[in-house]
């Protein structure tokens, strides 16, 4: 393989690996901009992946699977909302709890229903989102440079991948160009002011966590019924936390979120590629360095060494209307 082929193949897997991060980080963007911390992204993604695989297996329909994933993910969001908005509980504690519930329940139910050690059975082709070949991809393949990139990176992804990239400008538009978005950002900075304007802080925050549940449904479905053909236990494997890191790395802004997710996806793809390969002059670079890099970068950013990340001011603070 020459260098160009390697680059194309790494870029292809970068796209595939960053999609679940992108949906999840956008989900986090909505809740956190509304002033609700969401450590539970990981759990929502995992629960959605399980639900999608179950529904897709039973019905044999990928779209119904996606719907199932979204439904369960929104249910988790509502529990998070009930605990942290209605009952003014600690948002982080609630998120941690939901992560555990998802991690345990997916395996317990999976084992009880399918008896395959927490896996769901292999999905039929109709129960999955299969790659879409864009028009002209085969014809373009022989064109130098652009051809392979078009055929292997841009074309040949499943519908959820394109939806993820569509979700970025859409999220930007919702957050910055609609009344709902303005109020949502305001409620994350100064809920008291929003309340004074006669808008319900509670209902606004609930809508934010529901949007997050909706988006996490997509990332979960992507994991189990698009990227693979079954649910495997603990298949989110910390991606929810990487997405959270990407969200912080992007300073809670939609377009930078996309680039941060692509960067972390690239690190992941590059680590896979580098496994067992020696770098001239340095020797074999341990794969753990690449695995740890997104977290290290986020900490360096949080330390204020690469610009300062200002979180939404009212983040993590339950809103009390009267004392």
């Amino acid at each position: 393989m020459d260098l160009f082929d390697i680059i194309v193949s790494i870029l292809g897997s970068t796209i595939r690996l960053s999609i679940p991060l992108l949906f999840t980080a956008l989900a986090g963007l909505f809740t956190e901009r509304a002033g609700v911390f969401d450590i539970g992204l990981e759990g929502k993604m995992l629960a959605a992946a399980f639900a999608s695989a179950c529904v897709a297996y039973v019905t044999g329909n990928a779209w119904l699977g996606l719907l199932g994933g979204i439904g369960v993910s929104i249910l988790f969001s509502l529990i998070h909302g009930f605990a942290s908005i209605t009952n003014r509980g600690n948002q982080i504690v609630s998120g941690v709890a939901l992560n555990f519930i998802a991690a345990g329940l997916t395996i317990v139910l999976g084992q009880a229903w399918f008896g395959q050690g927490g896996r769901t059975p292999q999905l039929p082709a109709s129960g999955r989102f299969s790659p879409i070949i864009l028009p002209g991809a085969d014809a373009m393949r022989d064109v130098p440079v652009i051809g392979p990139i078009y055929a292997n990176v841009i074309s040949g992804n499943n519908i959820l991948t394109y939806l993820a990239f569509l979700a970025v400008p859409l999220s930007w538009w919702v957050l910055y160009r609609t009344r709902f978005g303005l109020r949502l950002r305001a409620v994350g900075e100064n809920p008291g002011a929003v309340d004074t304007a006669g808008i319900s802080v509670t209902w606004l925050r609930y809508r934010a966590v529901i949007v997050a549940g909706f988006l996490c449904g997509f990332s979960g479905a992507y994991l189990s019924i698009a990227q693979s053909a079954a649910f495997i236990k603990d298949m989110s494997a910390g991606k929810g936390y990487i997405a959270l890191a990407a969200l912080i790395f992007a300073k809670w802004k939609p377009v930078p979120v996309m680039f941060a997710c692509l960067l972390f996806g690239f690190l992941d793809a590059f680590a896979n590629f580098m496994q067992g390969k020696a770098v001239p002059g340095i020797g074999e670079v341990p794969v753990q360095i690449f695995q740890a890099l997104p977290y290290i970068l986020t900490c360096v950013l949080l330390a204020g060494f690469i610009g300062i990340a200002h979180p939404p001011k009212a983040g993590g603070v339950p809103y009390t209307k009267e004392r």
């Binding site: 009930f82 942290s84 509980g89 609630s94 709890a97 939901l98 555990f100 519930i101 998802a102 345990g104």
Partner: peptide, 15 residues
């Protein structure tokens, strides 16, 4: 793990 999560939810967040 489920029980652990439920305990954290009810003893912590829904205190």
């Amino acid at each position: 793990v489920v029980i652990q999560g439920l305990v954290i939810l009810f003893a912590g967040a829904l205190e």
